[in-house]
Design a protein around this nucleic acid. Structure first.
Lengths: 126, 126
DNA sequence: ATTGACGGCGTTCATTTGAACGATATAATG
DNA sequence: CATTATATCGTTCAAATGAACGCCGTCAAT
């Protein structure tokens, strides 16, 4: 395991829809794509095939259709992506990224509260 | 402005060194690269040329050498990258990413304190 | 002046990615 | 059954990316 080739951007986009739907045909994925992202259904098909080739999804026949289902959990892939991002952009240090996210992007008051709880808990642990 | 083509991974790697050194020749960049990343100096040169073509660095002659200097601030590029990442992976929501970073990666106690300060300040602002 | 080292420029080349077509198979409809 | 629609598979194709060569010029040491 682990040795799956990385996902290209468009592939990830499509994979995210498969994760969301749980199981889907090409057409279903196609229809679930954001409308501003205006791809041909054949293109979506191509990306699904590539996802399968890379081992991220599985396909089985249902009548004349292919149905795709995830082979890897989203959280797992996302974790890898975050890891890689932090390593590449922030030299492996999560702190500066967190800092930037807090400053730059808006968090609701509720989210701020939840983060404070998390931080308190983290501090107690150490 | 603004419409610079995106940086490829290897290009970013090289750009980071230019930012760190402030100004550097091909060889200097080459020598400043992490040793485990074992690239040919000619390759580094290629990436620097591409960085120039994309408008991220500038070059001027110094004797027989080219000296490269940044044309864009690192913080600016990093901001864009973070933005794009949050959009693509987390649907534009910074919170889940922050959450993941707090859980998964180690923060020192001091960093936790600083984050708590930031959060307090943010809450007061709203 | 000759040689050799290094530097730059133009090029090359394979792979990956983004995007889609056309032919064939198959299912649904009249 | 004939027609039409749709799905799949194999292919294609251009641009981007990762990685490096080779030629040619110049500067420094012999």
């Amino acid at each position: 395991m682990g040795k799956r080739p990385a996902l290209a951007k468009s592939e990830l986009e499509v994979a995210q829809i498969v994760w969301k739907l749980g199981r889907a045909t090409v057409r279903e994925v196609f229809e679930a794509m954001p409308s501003e992202r205006d791809l041909n259904v054949k293109t979506v098909q191509t990306y699904l095939r590539r996802l399968e080739a890379k081992g991220y999804v599985q396909t089985y026949r249902e009548g004349r259709n292919n149905v795709y289902t995830p082979l890897v959990r989203a959280s797992q892939v996302v974790r890898r992506l975050v890891d890689d991002f932090v390593n590449r952009i922030f030299g492996g240090q999560p702190f500066p990224l967190v800092q930037q996210l807090l400053e730059q992007r808006g968090l609701t008051d509720e989210e701020i509260d939840r983060l404070q709880c998390m931080l308190n808990r983290l501090k107690k642990l150490s």
